[in-house]
Computed example of a mutant assay.
Amino acid sequence: MTADARVREVGDIRTAHLFDLVVDLNPRLPIGSGPFGRRVLFGAAGGTFCGPKLHGEVVPGGGDWALFAPDGTMALDVRLTLRTHDGALLHMTYGGRWVTPPALREAMADPAERYRIDPAGYYFRTNPLFETGAEQYAWLNGIVCVGSGYLVEGGIAYKICEVL
């Protein structure tokens, strides 16, 4: 097949570290199996974020309205509020996918051991977007990010990068 003549070279996708995010989680709330899969709410109890341009805390009350497919793949539907060190509020949303190979599923089900599993063994990627009315952080309204997630004791963590 011949490439479409309208296709142009636009350069490789580059990223820059925005911040590391740790979200402390409340006990899960199993909503149950429905027409699209098994829904579980992982509520945010707090947390922190820290990067070269901004840092602060996760405001309790957001969460992930996760949907588990029959094959174990988790589709994320996350909404969080972040408060920067200088008091600005940021609305952060992201979807994503968490795919755990069958060989790791039993270990991931063990609350005492799951955070010790090497994140290289599973696929956990997100696509964060931001909204804010804070003038000093308005630049966040116009960027797209990607994130790599992993489990930590008591919650979940992400390395978030801005797509340049």
Results as ranks from 00 to 15, higher is better:
43 G>D: 10
118 D>C: 04
20 D>K: 09
17 H>A: 11
51 G>W: 02
84 T>C: 03
58 V>N: 06
125 R>Y: 11
56 G>M: 01
68 F>N: 07
160 I>T: 10
41 L>H: 08
147 G>L: 03
7 V>D: 04
39 R>V: 07
103 A>K: 14
12 D>Q: 12
141 N>V: 09
77 D>G: 09
32 G>R: 02
144 V>G: 14
88 A>Q: 00
43 G>V: 01
7 V>N: 03
52 P>W: 05
54 L>Y: 01
160 I>S: 04
145 C>Y: 07
42 F>G: 05
1 M>W: 14
46 G>R: 00
71 D>G: 05
20 D>A: 11
147 G>D: 04
138 A>Y: 11
90 L>I: 12
139 W>Q: 06
5 A>I: 12
150 Y>V: 08
112 A>T: 07
40 V>A: 00
51 G>A: 02
156 I>D: 00
85 H>D: 15
163 V>S: 02
74 M>F: 01
30 P>K: 03
23 V>I: 13
112 A>F: 04
93 T>F: 05
16 A>S: 11
111 P>A: 07
145 C>G: 05
162 E>R: 11
154 G>Q: 04
22 V>H: 06
132 T>P: 03
22 V>R: 09
21 L>Q: 06
65 W>G: 00
21 L>M: 09
17 H>C: 03
69 A>H: 12
103 A>M: 14
14 R>E: 11
125 R>V: 15
76 L>M: 02
11 G>F: 02
41 L>F: 12
134 A>Y: 06
3 A>S: 15
76 L>S: 00
83 R>H: 06
108 M>R: 12
139 W>I: 02
75 A>M: 07
